[in-house]
Structure formats: C-alpha cells, structure tokens
Design a binder for these strands. Structure first.
Lengths: 120, 120
DNA sequence: ACAATTGGTTTGCCATGCAAACCTCGATCT
DNA sequence: AGATCGAGGTTTGCATGGCAAACCAATTGT
C-alpha cells in the first residue's frame, strides 16, 4: 500500500484537461472533437495534443470520418480508459473521505488558525 | 458559467504532489518537511520546489526553527490554502457525482449519447 | 473565382517537474 | 582539534509538458 492516496494517482489521467476529456467521453460514449473543444474551453491545438497523449497511453481511440462532407473526429474511451478513469475517481473519493472527516469537526474552511508556530 | 467541472480546477492546487501536500497539511494542521517528504514519497528537492509554489500562491506558510538543536521546517495551510483545497474538493465531488450516475447503471456501454451521432 | 469558415495538426516557446549536485550545521570518530 | 558522517534542505540543470499561434486542407458563401 502506498503511503498516501495521491501517490496512486496517474499523472496521465489526473491532469486537469485530460481528466475533463475522459469524463466527457465517459458521459457521452462517443464525442466529437469540436464538442470537447467547446465544452472544455480549449484551443484545437491544445486538445489535439492531449488526445495524442491519451491515445498513446491507450486510454482513448481516435476515429476520423465524415459527417456529410464535413470531416469529423470522434473520441471514444477504451476499456483501459474506463478503468483508468474509474481508478482515478476511486482514489479521489478516498482522498475526499479522509478530508471530509476533518471538515465535520472543523466546520469547513477553518477560521481559527493563528500565526505563531515557532516552537523554540 | 463554466462549461464543465474540470474548468474550475486550479492548476496550482490540482497538481498531484501539491494536492497531496495540501491534504496532509490539512489533516495535521502543521507538518514537518521530512514527514511530507516520506509520506508523499518525494525527493527533498522536489518537495522544496512545490512548497515554494504553494507559498508563493499564498496557500501555505513555511516556518523554520529548531527542534532541540536540529533545524526543522514546518508547513502550515493558510486560510486561502484551506479555501483552495476546499474548492478543489467541492469541484471533484461534483465531477464524481456526474460520473457516479453513469456507473450505477454501467454494464459497459452507455446507451444515450448526446454529443455526437454515429459515423456511417 | 476567391474570400471566409470549419476542422484539425504541427511548430515554437515558456513553464513545470524532477533528481542530482550542492550547501550548512551538528554529532561522532580518532 | 580536525576529519568524517549524516540530517535537513536549497539550488541547478535538464527533459518534459502545456499552451497558443501558425499553418494546412477541405467546404461553403458571394
């Protein structure tokens, strides 16, 4: 067992934009490039790069085709991608539960901290 | 309004190692450098850099002092740090809830795609 | 015909993340 | 006392990553 939940987070999956891509892809099963682009507020270049990373890692497949005469690119989670996302979520849930335990006692953002920790 | 939960994640906070630092600091209120180092499995150099980022962002304070005659460095969340962590957790919870709905009925493929029609 | 738009990839650059090398001070050995 | 060892961190150097701008290709509008 690793020492802390965050130790088992995969950097490929945990990255903000890619986490968004995986989440949207899971919700929709098959997603258009342009839908991801606008939903996640990305430039096309940025999205293209992140999709490359995910494809290379085997977490998504990229399918190109036509809708009428318009070129389209679709993104779909692979089985490994679903598992990777699931693992990320599981780890995050663990982390959240650890912190939630504290929030119950502490009332959320704790106002009571002072600024004199010098022990000497 | 942001289009997707991940859009409101702060990259300073969301980064894997720093999320770990903030989480541990919140759990313990005041943490020794070396405790963070071993708990999170980091090199001292790496930890030092990340603490610099968090301090510069105003999310933690770094206090140096002595324990006996041994130099020690303590890390403590600021109020802003607590809020930032809380916001991150809140966003993650939102994201998880969205995906959890799918997982409940997940036997594999999700029937109702709304993002894209199937290609020919 | 050709300008504008859609759809996406490649390029170039700066920021980031990491470990190795380094620095400083106290404890221990001889 | 001087050398040596180790704990506790910081700085340096480098490879990677993330981003937008520039670019390429096909389509639609005028």
């Amino acid at each position: 067992m690793t020492e802390h939940p965050t130790n088992s987070l995969d950097d490929v999956v945990h990255q903000r934009v890619r986490l968004g891509i995986l989440a949207v892809a899971k919700e929709a099963r098959r997603v258009e490039f342009t839908f991801l682009r606008s939903t996640l507020g990305l430039t096309a270049g940025n999205l293209s790069q992140h999709l490359g990373v995910l494809e290379k890692a085997g977490l998504v497949t990229i399918d190109k085709g036509y809708e009428g005469k318009r070129a389209r690119t679709w993104v779909q989670l692979t089985k490994a991608g679903k598992k990777a996302l699931h693992d990320e979520i599981t780890t995050l849930r663990t982390l959240i539960h650890q912190l939630e335990g504290l929030e119950e006692r502490d009332g959320g953002v704790n106002p009571g901290s002072t600024a004199a920790p010098s022990p000497g």
